[in-house]
């Protein structure tokens, strides 16, 4: 054993490192197998939780399983998920990723009805500055020492920036802008970039849905 400890020949050292890496891989593979299913389940649950918050009408399909991917007119990645009840199309959940956040991608998920009206907007993935950009994105009931043990209020927690899209329809031609850029949407001072990214993502989601809604209408009774 001491021989191995003092060994300095390159092939032996190389072999030792190789064996270490092999053992490590052998240990990790069962962990990977074990956690694969729970990780997928966790991701699905997160997905379903966000779908539930979108103010969608009641549905009984799995929208994420019927999802189709598109590239929007503004080159955003957009995923359209049809929401059905007993096979009939009821609404859409649309996920759109804006690459122009302050710290990387901002992913929004929005609910649209069949006329293209926005039901609710939710930011589902972001890494914006905590306390500044994240305030544009978060929908959260604030816990305080006074309401700690009271039941949580039901429904969608309010967020001024995200709520202003509700009930609106994305126009076909002109683009949505925040007030600083001459548009009509409020933004948070100090988090203009995040506000812009969210606005653009919602707009691209709506525009892509306009272009491709027909794909889901096929076989639908009008």
């Amino acid at each position: 054993m001491t021989k191995l400890r003092e060994n300095e020949s390159v092939p032996v050292l190389g072999a030792f490192l190789g064996i270490t890496a092999l053992v490590s891989a052998l240990v990790l593979s069962p962990v990977f197998m074990l956690t694969r299913a729970p990780i997928e389940k966790m991701q699905r649950e997160t997905m379903q939780k966000s779908l539930k918050m979108l103010n969608l009408p009641l549905f009984d399909n799995a929208p994420d399983r019927e999802a189709k991917e598109y590239i929007s007119p503004g080159n955003f990645k957009v995923v359209i998920m049809p929401v059905r009840k007993a096979g009939a199309l009821k609404a859409f959940a649309v996920r759109s990723v804006s690459p122009d956040g302050y710290a990387g991608d901002v992913e929004i998920t929005a609910g649209f009805d069949l006329a293209g009206k926005i039901l609710a907007v939710l930011v589902t993935r972001q890494q914006e500055t905590p306390g500044l950009g994240s305030n544009v994105c978060e929908r959260k009931f604030r816990k305080t020492i006074f309401n700690l043990f009271q039941p949580r209020p039901v429904g969608l927690p309010p967020n001024h920036i995200l709520d202003q899209f509700h009930g609106k329809t994305v126009p076909e031609k002109e683009s949505w802008k925040v007030k600083r850029d001459g548009g009509s949407f409020d933004f948070v001072t100090g988090a203009t970039i995040t506000s812009r990214a969210v606005t653009a993502a919602v707009e691209q989601a709506g525009k892509t849905l306009r272009l491709h809604m027909e794909d889901f209408m096929k076989g639908e009774k009008k």
Partner: peptide, 10 residues
Amino acid sequence: IVPKKIRIPV
């Protein structure tokens, strides 16, 4: 049993 020279990578 780890050879001294490569203990850090191991």
